[in-house]
Design a protein around this nucleic acid. Structure first.
Ligand SMILES: [Mn+2]
Ligand SMILES: [Mn+2]
Ligand SMILES: [Zn+2]
Ligand SMILES: [Zn+2]
Lengths: 141, 141
DNA sequence: CGTTTATTTATAATAATTCTAAACTATTGA
DNA sequence: TCAATAGTTTAGAATTATTATAAATAAACG
């Protein structure tokens, strides 16, 4: 019986090649951390800490550079939920979020679980680049 | 024929009294700027600039203090759309936003124009404190 | 009034992020 | 294989929105 992996694992080198980014030690390590498991949400600081723990030696500046390069390449997307800190999401497909305000944690909501009925038209001369739905939660767990 | 004001004008002194904040020159001036016209969205910097132009002498620290005090009193609400800058909204009733990304401008969407059908349940032990819908726009106007 | 308490503000501190420029590394194509 | 080139990393400085500090000022209250 075949099981479908919970997340399409992408070979880090392949991924960097496609993004036209040189496969440096730092980028490979970050790609592994980001994409080897299931979908996740990180901040520059959280990913940096994780790299340290995994004994990957790199600078925080490289983490920022890489997160932005990956975002530009469409491998990540930014989620704005907190004005003091930028979150990056490895799930780039259309979906919305719970934001656990007490813990500063983002979790995904399945695409079908939020249904926006009656979206207003974009004003003259503009086009909708994205619709973000953030359900802010308070309380434990 | 009576016309309904587009926004319930609130007497600044009355407003401060109800919020249990002393009616200082600075707060009165900011309350006037914020609530005398129609609903609006400001940043600390934009409101500070406006005060300067109106020859109200106050410090930027007072603008920040006042925006937070007004928010705590329920006269304003924060809107998170841009990780580099905090927006405050004089419209505290339930509604959603267009965010004009090129200009950094927020505009209101009427409550009825967005209809979320099928909102997921809050995870165990949490409660929904707010649902934010941001329609991000690119392009002129 | 005079005393108490809240407010304002200049200024310093903080913190996330970006910038700079020098050192390092991957790629390329003779 | 190797030098030249172009891209990458990084320490450290700079930036920027925001918050903290603490002294001066103003409002409230009896
Ligand atoms: Mn952070
Ligand atoms: Mn701002
Ligand atoms: Zn997500
Ligand atoms: Zn609004």
């Amino acid at each position: 019986m075949e099981t479908v992996a919970p997340f399409p694992y992408r070979d880090p080198s392949e991924l960097l090649r496609r993004a036209r980014l040189r496969p440096t030690r730092q980028r490979l390590a970050l790609a592994r951390l980001l994409f080897a498991g299931g979908p996740r949400h990180v901040t520059a600081e959280s990913l940096f800490a994780e790299a340290q723990t995994a004994n990957v030696r790199l600078s925080l500046a490289t983490v920022y550079n890489t997160l932005h390069q990956f975002t530009e390449a469409g491998l990540l997307r930014e989620v704005v939920v907190d004005s003091s800190c930028t979150y990056f999401d490895t799930n780039v497909s259309e979906h919305h979020h719970f934001f656990h305000e007490d813990q500063g944690v983002l979790t995904d909501i399945d695409g079908e679980e939020v249904n926006i009925h009656a979206l207003p038209a974009a004003p003259e001369g503009t086009k909708i680049s994205r619709v973000d739905v953030i359900i802010r939660l308070s309380g434990q767990k």
